[in-house]
Design a protein around this nucleic acid. Structure first.
Lengths: 199, 199, 199, 199
DNA sequence: TCGTAATCGAGACGGTACGTCCCGTCTTTTC
DNA sequence: GAAAAGACGGGACGTACCGTCTCGATTACGA
């Protein structure tokens, strides 16, 4: 998941990377993504600034790893009999992480960075959990797609858009109720054929 | 936006204000929101930096006015016989502005700033056209709401989220086709009752 | 004493000039010359900034008038039987004004301004009481000059230099003792013929 | 002056420091202390502004080092058989530096800054050559003090005051003749006992 | 076992932008 | 028609980070 760009495994990267990621996560949780400087992360991690830049080319790249580190370790399963239940469950698990970790603030910051910087845009595009459709898609359509089944891509797209907007406008509003609302709206959007006119 | 209802109106020079907004719009269109400094705007507008800071407290506040200036002057009507047609038309008109003006890049930058800075968040929240639900709502439900009519708030929320995501990830992708897709998905999301269970 | 530069007497200058000078003196006493802005003086005097600039071309020019206003109104007499007594008395009277009015801080500020700005230099040169030799000279040599009498110009020059240095380095150190010391040193310097070698 | 005795010496680049001081001296010589901005010094030295602020907290602190750099490197000896000759020689050497380097203008600027700003005051107090009595004192009383010998502190004080006044009022008037006059007056002032009464 | 080379801490550095302050001039409005 | 109110151009300030860079000191590996 990390992007060390080193061909050979780095000699002495043992706990440093973890310390850096932990320091970055903690500072982001406390002060917000934008208010965290690389220098502060380095100081808190007990590491030289250059050590961070050795492994991550930019600040957003570092925080993409922070984000995935916070999210990946939780198994987002989203079990349930039907797509609605599964998606709602998935979002609830995700939102619980957003409430208990700095992930939501990191996500918001990364979206902001993506808006500003094309390089960050690419990192966000490919690096964020909900940016990768697979997790949502698995939740939505594990059993093959019937005729009336929602389109997984549309569901994913709408859900991600709503989550992002939530992260930007109100990073503290990731409640269970919101999970249900987003799941319902995403599924509804996906259920409707893209070409308008049908029931 | 910036005109405090003082007893004596502020003597801000109308020409200067216009020059500042025009310069900001042009630079944002050319280099992107993030790459535009207040000093550059001042230089291009032929104005002292302090003159900008006198009227707008921060860069996002300035660009909220830039954005609304670019969008407001177009009458976004969205005429048509049914909600789908009207919303699609509205978005097409909006997207045409996004293609012909720097508005999309400004929007993306503002979203990014909102993610970073609470003050910008507030400005964005209240200042952006699509942040004000009324325009979309009017397009969606001008004739009162029937039983099967979509919920205007939901439609607005989903449409705005999708537009924002588009602006962040691909500010050049505001095509007519995308307008249709977003309209359809937003309407579908709004048509489905929020409490899950019904068809 | 003021330098209005208006040929005709200004129409409505009644108490405004006094208010301006009083405000400037008070602010200089409270915050020091450098920390006083013309805007602050105008605000405290209940006057528009332009009104100050109408009568005084620059900030130092204003404060030269402030200084002379504070000093002139006191009759610096320096009575006594001999030059030493007279000069000591004169300096004691002056130093009492320095202790009871903002004059010392204004003087220090003006010297600083003179060091920076040629225009201020000229104003200081001609405007300050001790810059004009007459007062000191009168104290030193009112009865004509005998053979061993001190040279008034030298006495004045040394005394002024020592007062200035005191104002710059320690504006609160204008004590009676210091007056005596300065008087003695100035007289001694003046008593000695300029060409070295004589007793 | 700026070299804290850390265990590991600060890695300040000797070349940068020299370039900064040289640029500051040159600009002060050309335009005068007050007209020199830190930005201009940085630009002329080919250095980032922050690099200056890293080592000198304020503009006066920088120019104290500029001044001492201009003066210190000259051995101000003031040799001669008697105090008068030595002091005159010392001042002539100093004044020659004032004529051939920007030191006089820097000195005048620093005095002005000291008048305005307590921090500058402290820097000037301890940093200037003639502010340190030792050089003058050595010139005046190297051979112990006889009964009629001038008081070194008084001589120093009067000489410094006269030099400062000269710097402020006429930085270009540091002639050999003026050196003789100042030396004579300072010695005469010092020769007279401070308590008045003696011949 | 010991060189050798990488890794790392420390932090200086060029650069860019920030937002503030005040000067002295100009413009508008009020009395 | 003078004054208040205050906008304005201009320019410097001192701060904050960015991402790059140069140092030695460590330290693990390969000879």
């Amino acid at each position: 998941m990390q992007s060390p760009a080193c061909a050979r495994p780095p000699r002495r990267s043992a706990g440093k990377q973890a310390a850096i990621l932990a320091a970055a996560a903690e500072l982001a949780g406390r002060h917000g993504y934008a208010a965290v400087s690389i220098e502060a992360v380095a100081a808190k991690a007990g590491v030289a600034k250059q050590t961070i830049y050795r492994w991550w080319p930019t600040k957003p790249a570092l925080f993409v790893d922070v984000y995935t580190g916070l999210i990946d370790r939780a198994a987002l399963t989203g079990a349930g009999p039907d797509a609605g239940t599964r998606l709602t469950g998935l979002l609830r698990e995700l939102f619980r992480l957003y409430r208990t970790t700095p992930a939501a603030r990191v996500l918001a910051g990364l979206i902001g960075a993506a808006a500003a910087d094309p390089a960050a845009r690419a990192a966000v595009r490919s690096g964020l959990v909900l940016g990768r459709a697979d997790i949502v898609a698995v939740a939505v359509a594990p059993a093959g797609r019937g005729l009336g089944d929602p389109d997984p891509d549309t569901v994913t797209g709408v859900a991600v858009a709503l989550v992002w907007q939530q992260a930007i406008l109100d990073p503290d509003g990731f409640t269970d109720a919101r999970a249900g609302t987003i799941a319902a709206q995403a599924l509804a959007a996906g259920a409707c054929p893209t070409d308008p006119g049908s029931p």
